[in-house]
């Protein structure tokens, strides 16, 4: 089957492209690529390399000392209490990601599906659902912190007023509810984003397919499960990778909602906060140590993102 030319349209397209007389010359291509490449190198590659270099040096304040090899990396895993905070924060990031995928991504998909059809209210609800992520995470965190305040917050006051006083919890002050609360607030903020992507994905599926299935007697659920969902695989892949990157770099929302040391007692501590504390509230060697942590976080996020993307691409191929 794969030998059929139609099964591999990419090679064909590439061949015609090369033959094309309109193909610009190398200097022309370079001229167009260079501005972006220079900006990218100056603002992305250079700082990354710089961080990598910093991570192998000893620092005293901003003054660079001796080359220490992997000492900073070793410190990350041996210095108390960093050696306990780091794995705990990593665990919280994993929980953050799983929680977000379960709640935010499923809700995003649900809303996208619900808003795919109706003639009225579509635009209104789309706007409403996407509005929170136009606000800065710091502001969202601050607002929700006020809302969830155990003493004066409207959330608990409302619960008490309607006779559900038992449910009025110190949402951000109890280790059992603190991280789930952060995940929910974050989902509240971002749910519109997967919704938009899924919405675009659903709109891209040809109605002929749905009609054909319906004529064959398929229910709405079966159409969704066996036609729409498989065809949304590329979108699911993108959403997963973006969610993963966002969650493992989470900082602003946790910082403003809970605090710099992930209170209470580290229950909301994530890698971003550990980095922040190491870099800005750490000791004299903070610069090297924080750079080492930044390098590790980058390598981890980069590797997993590439891995997940490859996996989804294979899945797409299989489904095709």
């Amino acid at each position: 089957m794969t030998a059929l030319p139609s099964a591999n349209p990419n090679t064909k397209r590439r061949r015609t492209w090369r033959k094309n007389a309109m193909m610009p010359s190398v200097p022309t291509i370079a001229l167009f690529v260079l501005p972006a490449l220079i900006l990218y190198t100056v603002f992305m590659v250079y700082p990354l390399v710089q961080a990598l270099i910093f991570s192998t040096f000893e620092f005293n304040g901003l003054v660079r000392g001796d080359f220490v090899g992997l000492h900073n990396f070793q410190e990350l895993f041996t210095r108390y209490p960093l050696n306990e905070q780091l794995p705990r924060a990593f665990g919280h990031n994993v929980a953050f990601f799983i929680g977000t995928m379960t709640i935010q991504t499923s809700l995003g998909l649900l809303f996208a599906r619900l808003l795919h059809r109706p003639r009225f209210g579509k635009r209104f609800f789309r706007t409403v659902f996407t509005m929170p992520y136009l606000i800065s995470p710091i502001v969202v965190g601050y607002l929700w912190r006020l809302m969830l305040n155990p003493l004066f917050g409207p959330v608990n006051n409302t619960l008490r007023d309607v006779g559900l006083g038992d449910l009025a919890k110190p949402w951000l002050g109890d280790p059992a509810t603190a991280l789930p609360t952060v995940i929910l607030v974050n989902a509240w903020m971002w749910v519109g984003f997967p919704m938009l992507l899924f919405g675009a994905g659903l709109a891209g599926i040809e109605d002929d397919l749905r009609e054909a299935a319906r004529i064959d007697g398929a229910s709405d659920w079966r159409i969704f499960r066996h036609i729409e969902l498989p065809l949304l695989t590329p979108v699911i892949g993108i959403v997963t990778v973006l969610t993963f990157i966002g969650n493992f770099n989470a900082f602003g929302i946790v910082w403003s909602l809970a605090g710099a040391d992930g209170p209470p007692a580290g229950a909301t501590d994530v890698l971003g906060l550990v980095f922040y504390r190491t870099a800005f509230a750490g000791g004299p060697d903070a610069f090297g140590l924080a750079s080492a942590l930044a390098v590790l976080m980058f390598l981890f996020i980069f590797t997993v993102s590439v891995g997940v993307q490859t996996w989804f691409r294979r899945l797409e191929d299989k489904l095709q």
């Binding site: 210095r79 108390y80 209490p81 960093l82 109890d174 280790p175 040391d261 209170p263 209470p264 007692a265 580290g266 504390r277 509230a281 750490g282 000791g283 004299p284 060697d285 903070a286 140590l289």
Partner: peptide, 21 residues
């Protein structure tokens, strides 16, 4: 004068104390 500072350790630990942990 070094990392971790005394206050940076004691603060979160007292939170744990109040939580009975």
């Amino acid at each position: 004068y070094g990392d971790p500072t005394g206050t940076n350790i004691l603060g979160p630990e007292i939170q744990s104390l109040f939580l009975g942990e």
